[in-house]
């Protein structure tokens, strides 16, 4: 048996962007989606497409409506919650993990 050349990588190092997501497993994250949708929830699983399983989720949808009488823009937010949900990766714009201390 030969020794396996296991690269000595600091487990907390961010060497590629997806490491940022990997380090957020089991943490609450913020996800910005297309269509002015935002999610906050606990990251249970993800893959390279950024498909994700989130738990204990709060969804915020921002809608801009035009008041027909005053023609003013009215910004309205709709909130939904879900115990568990699957996010399809192609809608993801940004993922932000909880602030980590120490580098």
């Amino acid at each position: 048996m030969t020794e396996e050349a296991v690269p000595v990588v600091e487990p907390n190092a961010v060497e590629e962007p997806l490491d940022l997501v990997r380090l957020s497993l089991d943490e609450r994250i913020y996800v910005k989606l297309r269509g002015d949708r935002e999610l906050r929830g606990k990251l249970h699983a993800y893959d390279g497409h950024l498909n994700m399983i989130l738990g204990d989720v709060e969804e915020t949808i921002t809608v801009v409506e035009i008041n027909e009488e005053t023609e003013e823009e009215v910004i309205r937010t709709i909130k939904n919650t879900a115990e568990m949900l699957f996010v399809r990766g192609d809608g993801v714009i940004l993922v932000s993990p909880p602030s980590r201390t120490g580098a």
Partner: peptide, 11 residues
């Protein structure tokens, strides 16, 4: 503001 942010490349 975000401490860290991952941005999906297709955007």
């Amino acid at each position: 503001r975000y401490g860290d942010a991952f941005i999906r490349g297709n955007n």
